[in-house]
Design a protein around this nucleic acid. Sequence first.
DNA 1: GGGGAGAGATGCCGC
DNA 2: GCGGCATTTCTCCCC
Lengths: 246, 246
Amino acid sequence: MEINEFISRFKEALQKNHSIIFGAQCSVNYNGRAESFLRQGDRIVIVKPDKTLLIHQPSGAAPVNYMKEGTSINIFNSNDKKAVIKSKNLNLKEYLTLEISRIYFLQNHELVDGEKIQLAGTEKDMADMLIKEAHLIEKGFKPVSQEEQTKYGFIDVLGYDKDNILTVIECKRYVGDLKAVSQLRRYVEKIKSSKGIRQVRGILACPKISPNAKRMLLDFGFQFKRVEPPKYLEQYDKKQRKLFDY
Amino acid sequence: MEINEFISRFKEALQKNHSIIFGAQCSVNYNGRAESFLRQGDRIVIVKPDKTLLIHQPSGAAPVNYMKEGTSINIFNSNDKKAVIKSKNLNLKEYLTLEISRIYFLQNHELVDGEKIQLAGTEKDMADMLIKEAHLIEKGFKPVSQEEQTKYGFIDVLGYDKDNILTVIECKRYVGDLKAVSQLRRYVEKIKSSKGIRQVRGILACPKISPNAKRMLLDFGFQFKRVEPPKYLEQYDKKQRKLFDY
DNA sequence: GGGGAGAGATGCCGC
DNA sequence: GCGGCATTTCTCCCC
């Protein structure tokens, strides 16, 4: 595609507030929270109606460069037969420039999507499960109400063990690591000082724990409890997996 | 675009190992580390040559669903005039299905890009700067090592202050928060126990600090030092910013 | 808008 | 591969 045609079509798409996707050989220049430069190469660029800008290289899951929602975008023709896209986000003081030397394709469409993703198996789901099925922590464990939790802020599960000792539980949906133990420790200390209680138990509930995290956990007198994040749609999973046996 | 044409063109693009981008009305179904479902709506789908799969809604910076590098992808025609893309990653035990009811566009191209992004202003850059310009911490500070490894984690900068007291420095490139203080505390305690030293200083070096983090920092006898992450390309930045004054 | 924390985090580097 | 950690993290929730 010729540069001038690209520029006029891109401008028109911006005007219409379409979703814009193009493939191009370009270099990228970013200045804001950090600074970056990316030499010329082939990339996929997306401009969304909310003025999010994404630049993807032909490999990897994360965009190599991007601008957040609410970015202002301008395009013009440089002297040397290149298209230049300048984007800026004044609130965030971020600036990104694309120098485009070759265009492979351009698509723009009005895309409509009001749906929100439904997700199961999160840390919150784990906490909900542990409150409903307290025996998964240990026999005689009594979780306190959910409202009581929010009063203390960000503690996943708070309760009393069979000996009525206040217990803080931190859930992790995957491997418990040093950060998780530090976090648990912070909460236990917060509870101790805010409630003026000397003895508070700490439990890290997760499917696995790293060796160093386990050592640190035990050093602080905390405990590890193996818990799997709940799979609400397990029945459905099995069906799905079967369908994949092609 | 008609469903069968889409399927055959998609298959051909897969065969050629092209980068594939299409816009479509579709529903999405994921099972793996968690489970998710997304009802029908308009989305942008990208399949990269490394078999990364990305699904973007028309707003927001993050993909709503995705599959990581190395996913196997199949497409076929369902009974009810829909195209179905089934993707699976056996190593990660992840499965994602797209049910496509309408196609807005399809592009596939061989995109070549061997470039790597150059980044400045990271936490590592801050640590490098503090070692070269130790006075930025305080007069008489003598750095001894970088990325000192402990069982409880990696220390950004380790050194001795003007009174020869061992000092741990944790750098944050933006706002120092509770997590950062916890991290610093973990390192200081580890150094104390592993080296058998009673007095070890802890300094959090960052441009800003949250009020709660500051309180926690002082509670533990640590200090906050205001440091900006280095801007290596400052000269260039100023030029850039000027260019944006249009 | 800031603070705090999760995420199907991703990506990087080290062992 | 796992471990530990930064990230232009992004996103959400709550104040």
